[in-house]
Amino acid sequence: MLELFAQSETAQFGQFLLLGLVLGSLYALIALGYTMVYGIIELINFAHGDLFMLGSFLALQLSAWWLRYVVGDANSAGAVIGLLFVMLLVTPLACAALNVATDRVIYKPLRSSPKLTVIVSAIGVSFIFMNVGLFWMGATPVKFPDLIPDTNLTPDTGVVVTWKDVMVIGVTIPAMIALTLFVKFTSLGKAMRATAQNPTAAQLMGINVDRVIAVTFAIGGALAGVASVVYGLYIKAVEYQMGFQNGLYAFTAAVLGGIGNIPGAVLGGLVIGVVGELGKAYVGAKWSEALIFGILILVLLFRPTGLLGARIREKV
């Protein structure tokens, strides 16, 4: 009896851990957008979370159109896969385009201004995005189509792993690997690292800094787009304020890992996801957010530049 209890206790813990990791990898995807932009132009892009929100609204809109104009019935597996494909293709592209456009129109003229000026502009952009979201889907939470089954894939282990968990991991991990490879090995990636280290020197070496910045915003936006689709499918409801909440977590993740540092952002996201969910389970839901920030402050007290910030000097 006691043994059974202990076993289920462990399984329960595993379950919370899995939940934390899944949510954490979502935060990580969003955090990457923060951290890359910060690495290049030292801007805390407060609008990033709201870009993520708009992405999920677009995905929702796409699914509505898909059901109305293309297939008419979501039940067939082919229709669902087709819709997923469309969402995962269109949403990141749209988010990337929007992010680049925002940079062009709003942040670019402010490159030589003090940091606070740009941050305030970003807050302004975030307000406008929120207003767009408010008009688009209204203020009530909206149900996101439940496309991925909740079937338990591991019935014998006691830990429930569903297709949804597989999907999140299956999308986020490859995205992160692709990003790492891109930054490490392509010439554009090298240009990004160079620009992050020293923009003036990079420019002198013939790197087109404006292009590098545009690419950074594009990648950050695309990752937020991917995250928004995956989030919608996983959480199953979206609302216009979700950008604020999740953006805050992601920003925290980026700082926790050492802002400007790619692996740091991923690590930070995972830590926040796990701490938050374990906190909800074992400390109580009402304290979980305070716990996240408490841990953040503790970490920064002992490592003032984040978990990975000091050791790895390279940014982006």
Binding site: S121, I128, L134
Partner: peptide, 20 residues
């Protein structure tokens, strides 16, 4: 009030652009 967030946002952006 429906447009308030947008108006806020526009004011902030324009101010920072033209009067940083």
């Amino acid at each position: 009030s429906g447009w308030k967030l947008s108006i806020f946002g526009m004011v902030l952006i324009l101010m920072m652009r033209f009067r940083p």
